[in-house]
């Protein structure tokens, strides 16, 4: 029962979405069912966010209670979640500090703490990329050499100083990189990857619809 019902729901939902694609949503019952199902999906999506909060709270609370290694960071995570969430959930009519509008506690924390920390973490990548490129990007064989030369060309082409440098050799060189590297070699490889991934996604969807693939229910 615990397996059959989800498989039936997945099958019916998938079939409705596939078949309704061919019908006008305004004029057919099937199209209207599709619209209704899509609204349900967004509502279910909202509940999954809540489920995520419950899960992260449980996991971190357990670590704090048992004082596991690094429990202090678990405590910080819990405090962060609730300090951000509670004021944003409370109604604005109680205080202008509640809600998520400009001037609220949530907005202040997001702009001055959360956003800055995320940008800092992303910015640190520049240091690691520079160090990694210096130590690991070696022309060890023909393939690596081609990759290295292409990367150097594209990196030069993507910045004004580099582009000016390329123009010293030929005025058409930046345009050549755009036409033959980005819209040539890159594009053909990307198309292969995209088509391959789409075929994989289609076959996986079919396996889920037919109940062959059940890993999403925790079954092998």
């Amino acid at each position: 029962m615990r397996t059959t019902v989800p498989v039936i729901i997945a099958f019916l939902s998938g079939i409705v979405m596939i078949v309704s694609f061919f019908f006008n949503p305004d004029r057919t019952i099937l199209g209207q069912i599709e619209s209704e199902v899509l609204v349900w999906v967004t509502i279910v999506g909202g509940f999954t966010l809540l489920l995520g909060v419950v899960s992260i709270t449980r996991v971190n609370f357990r670590s704090v209670r048992l004082q596991k290694e690094g429990w202090f960071f678990n405590l910080l995570t819990l405090i962060s979640i609730f300090v951000m969430a509670i004021p944003s959930i409370l109604p604005v009519s109680w205080s202008p500090l509640f809600g998520d509008r400009e001037g609220s506690i949530y907005d202040w924390l997001f702009t001055n703490v959360d956003s800055i920390m995320m940008q800092t973490m992303f910015g640190l990548l520049a240091f690691y990329i520079a160090s990694a490129a210096y130590r690991a990007f070696r022309a060890r064989n023909a393939e690596a050499t081609i990759l290295l030369l292409t990367a150097v060309l594209v990196m030069l082409w993507r910045v004004p100083m580099g582009e000016a440098f390329l123009r010293l050799f030929s005025d058409d060189l930046p345009q050549w990189i755009n036409s033959y590297v980005m819209n040539g070699a890159n594009m053909s490889v990307q198309r292969g990857i995209i088509i391959g991934a789409a075929l994989g996604a289609a076959s996986m969807s079919l396996r889920i619809l037919l109940g062959i693939e059940r890993t999403y229910m925790g079954k092998g």
């Binding site: 520049a126 990329i129 520079a130 490129a133 210096y134 130590r135 990007f137 070696r138 022309a139 290295l148 990367a151 150097v152 990196m155 030069l156 993507r158 910045v159 004004p160 100083m161 580099g162």
Partner: peptide
């Protein structure tokens, strides 16, 4: 930001070249 990005790209290219010469 183009000035910063230009210098960073040129620095990384320089580092890659020096790294490979050293290699």
């Amino acid at each position: 930001g183009m000035g910063i990005q230009s210098l960073i790209h040129l620095l990384i290219i320089g580092l890659v070249l020096v790294g490979n010469i050293g290699y």
